[in-house]
Design a protein around this nucleic acid. Structure first.
Length: 225
DNA sequence: GCGACAG
DNA sequence: ATCTTGTCGC
């Protein structure tokens, strides 16, 4: 699929923050997905020695959740990991992987935050703007915001609030008695829809299937390299 | 100044 | 993220 460049990636942390503030004005946190047929998961594995990364995009059929396409891209990782600037480290590689994708997904699940970010520009949101496809942020831990512990039942959740009391996401229990994951809208989708479809993508594990498959694809492709 | 801090 | 074995619990 074609991806339109929105800005340069070879920037300083200060410039990156400036770019995020500008892009934040184009985010769409509303939208419904009626009948998804293809759902994708993405991930990036890093080789701390060779300083290279492997980005993966795995497209699964829905609702059966079977892998129908897997794309990998390996390249240098230059930008350092800085909380709040993760997209500048991973998106360059992810875009390369997406350029090889032929089955355009109806939704993309990203392992990281969506708008649950200091400037509302987490990895999922930034990627959604570039792909012009609905994206959902599904993070294993919290970046910012406060929340109450959700009930221990599978499917229960509690809102993630920013310092102003605004809802920016939710702590969602994808399995009974298991640590919740943090879901937030990436782009072109509402929080309710983000939670709903993510739960529809969950099998017998804490993380949604698309994310798990992407994680496996990126990691295995790192071994055979 | 101190603590927090996606992957 | 990545480094790592066994082990406690649903």
């Amino acid at each position: 699929m074609e991806i339109k460049p929105l800005h340069a990636w070879d920037v300083s942390p200060g410039e990156a923050i400036r770019i995020q503030i500008t892009l934040a004005g184009n985010v769409q946190t509303s939208g419904e997905i009626s009948h998804p047929l293809l759902v994708a998961g993405v991930d990036v594995a890093v080789d701390r020695f060779r300083k290279t990364g492997t980005a993966s995009v795995v497209v699964l059929s829905f609702p059966d959740l079977k892998v129908v396409e897997t794309r990998i891209h390996r390249g240098p990782v230059t930008f350092p990991y800085i909380p709040g600037l993760l997209s500048f480290r991973e998106i360059p590689l992810l875009v390369k992987a997406f350029e090889q994708v032929t089955l355009i997904p109806d939704i993309v699940l990203v392992d990281g935050q969506g708008i649950a970010h200091p400037r509302r520009m987490g990895l999922a949101t930034h990627l959604g703007l570039m792909l012009d496809v609905p994206t959902i942020g599904c993070a294993k831990s919290r970046l910012c915001g406060v929340f109450a512990e959700p009930c221990l039942d599978s499917g229960s959740f509690s809102p993630l609030l920013d310092d102003a009391g605004e809802t920016i996401g939710a702590a969602v229990r994808t399995r009974k008695n298991i640590k919740p994951i943090f879901i937030s809208p990436g782009h072109q989708i509402s929080l309710d829809q983000s939670i709903f479809w993510t739960l529809q993508c969950c099998g017998k594990y804490r993380l949604p299937e698309p994310t798990r498959q992407a994680h496996i694809a990126a990691k295995s492709s790192l071994i055979s390299a």
